[in-house]
Amino acid sequence: MKINKKSVLQLGVCIIFFGGLGILINNLTINLIRTGLGFNFTWLFKPASFALAEHPLPYTSSDSYAWAIFIGWLNSLKVIVSSLILATFLGTLIGLARTGKNFLLGIISAGYITVVRQTPLLLQLMFWYFVGFLSLNDNMFIQIKNIFNISNEGIEFSGLTFSSEFLALFLGLSVFTSAYIAEVIRGGILSVSGGQWEAFRSLGLSEREGITRIIIPQALPAIIPGLTSQYLNLAKNSTLAIAVGYSDIYAINDTIINQTGRAIECFIILLISFLLLNLVITNTMEIMNKLTLKSKKYG
C-alpha cells in the first residue's frame, strides 16, 4: 500500500515535469519557426572571415566558423588550465600562511583574502589589464636581448609570447580564485582536531613535516569538494575574457552571433562546451576524492 502510493506520486511528478518540458520545447520550436530562426547548423562550415590575435593552432580568416569556435575553445582551455594551476599553488600557500603561527604572514594573507574576495572579478580583470599591463611602457624595463621582453603588448620570454590580454585574464582569474581556495584550504586544516597538532609536535616532527604528513592528508577529504566548486567557478568565470579583449570561446561566439544571427545555435554550442568541460573537472576531482578517502582508510 505504502509503496504503491509512493510510486503513484513519483509517476505524477514525472508526468508534470516531462509535460512541462514538452510544452516548453513545443513553444520554442513554434517561436523559432515564427521568427524565421529555425535550427540550422550548416553555417558552421562557412568561412569565418574574421581574424584572431591568438590561435594555438594555425588559423586564417578563410577557415570555417567551426574551426574558429574550436580555436576559441582551445584558448579558453589554455587560460583555464594555467589559471587552475597557479590559483591552486597560490591558494595553498596563502591558506597555509593564514593558519600558520607566523603573525605577520597571517595578517598579510588575511588582508589579501579580504581585498580579493570583496571586489568584483570584472573590476579586477579590468584593473589588471588597463592599469596593470597597458600602462607598461617600452622604456620601463631593460630588455635583456632576445630573452625577456616586457611591453604593453605582453611578455616575450625566449621565443614564447604571452599577450597582455592573456596575462591579464590569467593573473586576474588566478588571484581571484586563489583567495577562495585559500579559505577552502584553511577550512580543511581547521577541521583537523587540535590534538593532531599537539601529537605530531610531541613526537618531535618539524612543523613542515607535521603539516605535510599529518595535517594535510587528514584535511584533504574536507578540502577536495570545496576545491571542485572553485575550479568550476574558475572555468565559468573565464568567459569574462571578453572584457579584456582575449579571444576565448565566448568572445568568438559573440562575433559569430553578430555575423550570422544564429544566437540560439551558438548558445547551445557554448553551453554544451562548458557542460562537457565542467563534467571533466567534476569527474577528475571525484576520482581524486575517492583516492584520498581510500588512502586514508588503509594508510
Binding site: 518540458l21 516548453l24 520545447i25 513553444n27 520554442l28 517561436n31 523559432l32 540560439i264 548558445f267 547551445i268 553551453l271
Partner: peptide, 8 residues
C-alpha cells in the same frame, strides 16, 4: 529547460 524558458 533553460533554453525553452528563454524563448517564450
Amino acid at each position: 529547460a533553460l533554453l525553452t524558458g528563454c524563448a517564450t
